[in-house]
Amino acid sequence: MSHVISEQRMANQIAANQRHLPEADAVAAVAGHIDRFWNSFLRSRLYALVDAGAAGLDPVVVKAVERIRT
């Protein structure tokens, strides 16, 4: 259990809840949710996780982050 990576846990959980969707839709849903509800502090920590190699992050989350950042 670690709080340092709570963004990882939260983002993966959002992705898990969209897994029933086709991947492109899941990516859009995760991106939309993070964009709408996450504060910039959380988002920047999530981006940092992605930049650090995305270890432990759901691939859908990684794609969603790419989409939000562009």
Partner: peptide
Amino acid sequence: ADPGLRIPNMFDA
């Protein structure tokens, strides 16, 4: 326009 911190995020931050 940016949402603020939720309670658990406040604690993390």
